[in-house]
Design a protein around this nucleic acid. Structure first.
Length: 723
RNA sequence: GGGCGCUUAGCUCAGUUGGUUAGAGCGACUCGUUUACACCGAGUAGGUCGGGGGUUCGAAUCCCUCAGCGCCCACCA
């Protein structure tokens, strides 16, 4: 008796039912896959923020990676996709602090470190389920049994072990350096978290005192009480005669001692051609002072207030600037004041104006030679001398990590060339605390606290990217020599947004290279950002957000996945277009109706062996086989947008529009040969179509598969046609 | 200042190592109540591939140049 499907495909309900069936099957876990799945293929999900909600960018990333992992699984690979979440401490702690401030009127110092950390951790854990259930809604075939969290025990062990080993290798050191201090967030931030904003500023030209021969220009008068030198270009005829001379001056009410030094970095054209050197409050000046062995007094503190003794003490920097300007004018030392545009460094997260300060921080030395004990990276042999920077460069140039998008590869190499030591300490409380303990002059570095009394742990925590950098192997059991690590590392693919190429991708290469002598992944597919229909980034202030869950509710996850993937070359930004998603909802219905039609005209049982076929039907199957081959190649070479579009096109404009129409009379006619040939064609074309489309639209294809081939197993592990 | 891109139909974009009349989706227009589907079907219009020059038998594709747009990095005190 022919079965009959409803006239319309309704994704509501079906999607969660299908996901439950998949999860129950156990096939998300490669250990449960049938015998034929031998060769490993692994991806580690870029962990979303544990306190976050699924946004359209995640949806895109999930669609992309799930398509790849489903394809590889059907091809017979031992496919593993590892899920996880990130504590994202620098985002999470302030969030919780804000809540506490609002509800209890207390700041973090009133709460205390231990209690705050406990609360932040609890908050993070409580929000975990939100993001995880949302990722499930996308249809992501993640192995939940291997779920990892950056702050769970296994990952904590990995982090402290990694720190200890690098410390012992001499690659982690503590140093006094000018860092980007964010007075608002009360922490150091990395260069990558600093943004530059153009602001109006006043450029003051003045001399320190009446007998000081060289005028200098600055926008930051208040820092000048901390000057210890004036730098001029060695070839500058105006100032050559003064090089090496030293002067005393009472600047405002601070006794300063200024030496004139030569430095080729000084631009003779800018300002007066002379640079007032403030070693403690400028990166460039710090280096000049270092070269010339000059003192480096700090005159501004962590709260962006003056710390110099005298009348300026505890004044805000802006206030001190006004006071000094007035004083200079009164003394007749101020030559001119100009209004200029200036780029101000601002903390991306808090909006605080960066105050460069000298601070004791922990760093990873990227240029320091060390002996790598073992290495599988081409061009770096075990036991040879190398540097972390060299590893990061070689991983790409050797091709061990394939980064086929040339533009991204170029900017990666350019970034490596300009890379400085990585400051890994942060002055917040929630996060991986630096595994260093002090007792008097003693210092201990270890995975666990030292025994004995009087030890105090370093108060700082690690940059969140430190733990993220270990992610490909910390999720697979490292530091133990686990089976997973041996089987699935290096992972097969990493697919991050270009935003985090430097922050994350490069640092994974660094860590994996040092700790395992391996690359973390063998290929990188960098994707673009999802923007709104006008090409703007999604942001709260623009209120242009699109909630993927709303879209899923309206059109289904399958349609959303297609809408995100089709027609966008991977690596370029894409504009989110709801009408496109709607189109793929219609497509799901089209496919559903092909199946409906087929079932209406099908024999009771699927035909087991090829019957005698008409020439036309045989040719149609040959064409399908050619299409399959083409699509398979696109999938292998990660041209997912083409594979998806071609599949769509075949199903709608060849299968539905041409084949179905052509065989209709045969199916309803009386010639048994024509009829059986047509039935076979329908059955085969549908089966292949479902397989080809499954990586992109897993729900509707699996749902149809269950209706049409109830005696077969799950479509998600159906073998991909070998073509 | 250094680096990387983009400019193809009204809109959003493909075009996979240069190869026959440049493609898709959406939109527009015309026609269609055929029992798979109106979340549909049949069809039509629409592009000198940003401008100019060059290489080649052949260029949207390679080179030079001009114009416009964007991103990343650094940052002048």
């Amino acid at each position: 008796m022919p079965r009959e499907l409803p006239k319309q495909y309704d994704h509501t309900g079906i999607e969660s039912d299908i996901y439950a069936i998949w999860e129950k099957s156990g096939f998300f876990n490669p250990d449960n896959l049938p015998e034929r799945h031998k060769e490993p293929f692994s991806i580690v999900l870029p962990p979303p923020n544990v306190t976050g909600v699924l946004h359209i960018g995640h949806a895109y990333e999930d669609a992309l990676q799930d398509a790849v992992i489903r394809f590889q699984r059907m091809r017979g690979k031992r496919a593993l996709w590892v899920p996880g979440t990130d504590s994202a401490a620098t985002a999470t702690q302030p969030k919780v602090e804000k809540i506490i401030q609002k509800e209890e009127g207390k700041n973090r110092h009133e709460i205390g470190r231990e209690e705050l950390v406990r609360r932040v951790a609890a908050f993070a854990k409580a929000s975990e389920n939100t993001i995880l259930s949302q990722v499930r809604k996308m249809g992501a075939s993640l192995d939940w049994s291997r779920y990892a969290y950056t702050m769970d025990d296994a990952r904590n062990t990995a982090v402290t072990t990694a720190f200890q080993r690098m410390y012992e290798a001499g690659l982690i050191y503590r140093g006094n350096r000018i860092v980007n201090w964010d007075p608002k967030g009360q922490t150091v931030i990395s260069d990558d978290e600093v943004v530059h904003e153009e602001r109006d500023a006043k450029l003051y030209t003045f001399t320190y005192s009446k007998d000081f021969p060289i005028p200098i220009a600055t926008t930051r008068l208040e820092t000048k009480v901390g000057d210890t030198a004036v730098a001029v270009h060695p070839d500058d005829p105006r100032y050559q005669q003064y090089i090496g001379k030293e002067y005393d001056a009472v600047f405002y009410d601070v006794l300063t001692h200024i030496k004139v030094v030569a430095d080729r970095g000084v631009d003779m054209e800018f300002g007066t051609g002379a640079l007032g050197v403030t070693p403690a409050h400028s990166m460039a000046d710090w280096e000049i002072a270092d070269k010339n062995n000059l003192p480096r007094p700090q005159v501004i503190n962590e709260y962006a207030k003056m710390s110099v003794d005298g009348a300026l003490k505890d004044k805000k920097t802006t206030e001190a600037r006004e006071l000094i300007a007035t004083w200079l004018a009164e003394q007749g030392l101020l030559q001119k004041v100009e209004n200029i545009k200036q780029n101000v460094s601002v903390a991306e997260r808090t909006g605080g104006i960066i105050e460069p300060l000298p601070k004791l921080q922990w760093f990873i030395a990227v240029d320091k030679p060390f002996i790598i004990s073992r290495s599988q990276i081409s061009g770096i042999s075990g036991g040879s001398e190398t540097t972390l920077k060299h590893i990061m460069r070689t991983a790409i140039t050797s091709g061990d990590v394939s980064m086929p998008q040339e533009n991204h590869r170029k900017s990666y190499m350019h970034w490596i060339d300009n890379l400085h030591d990585w400051c890994i300490s942060r002055q917040i409380w929630f996060g991986h605390r630096i595994p260093i303990w002090y007792r008097g002059d003693e210092l201990f570095c270890g995975v666990t606290a030292p025994s004995g009394d009087g030890w105090e742990q370093d108060p700082d925590v690690l940059d969140t990217w430190f733990s993220s950098a270990l992610w490909t192997f910390s999720t697979l059991g490292w530091p133990s020599d686990s089976k997973d690590l041996k089987t699935f590392h290096p992972t097969s693919l990493m697919s991050p947004a270009y935003e985090i190429l430097f922050l994350w991708v490069s640092r994974m290469i660094l860590m994996s290279g040092f700790h395992l002598g391996q690359v973390p992944f063998t290929s990188v597919l960098i994707h673009g950002l999802v923007r709104d229909s006008k090409g703007r980034k999604f942001s709260k202030s623009l209120d242009n957000g699109v909630d993927p869950l709303d879209i899923i509710a309206k059109y289904g996850a399958d349609a959303l996945r297609m809408g995100l993937l089709v027609g966008t070359a991977i690596g370029n930004d894409l504009k989110f277009d709801e009408s496109k998603v709607k189109g793929y909802r219609n497509f799901a219905n089209k496919l559903w109706n092909i199946a409906r039609f087929m079932l209406m005209n099908a024999p009771d049982q699927p035909i087991a062996t090829t019957p005698s076929l008409t020439d036309e039907d045989a040719q149609a199957l040959n064409e399908l086989s050619a299409v399959t081959k083409d699509i398979t190649k696109d999938m292998e070479e990660l041209r997912l947008y083409l594979a998806a579009e071609k599949t769509y096109h075949y199903i709608w404009h060849t299968f539905a529009d041409i084949l179905v129409e052509r065989v209709k009379p045969h199916l309803t006619g009386t010639d048994p040969v024509l009829k059986e040939s047509a039935q076979w064609l329908m059955q085969e074309a549908l089966a292949t179509s479902l397989i080809l489309l499954h990586p992109f639209m897993p729900f509707v294809t699996e749902a149809i598969w269950r209706e049409v081939f109830p005696n077969k197993g799950l479509l998600m592990i159906e073998p991909w046609p070998s073509a």
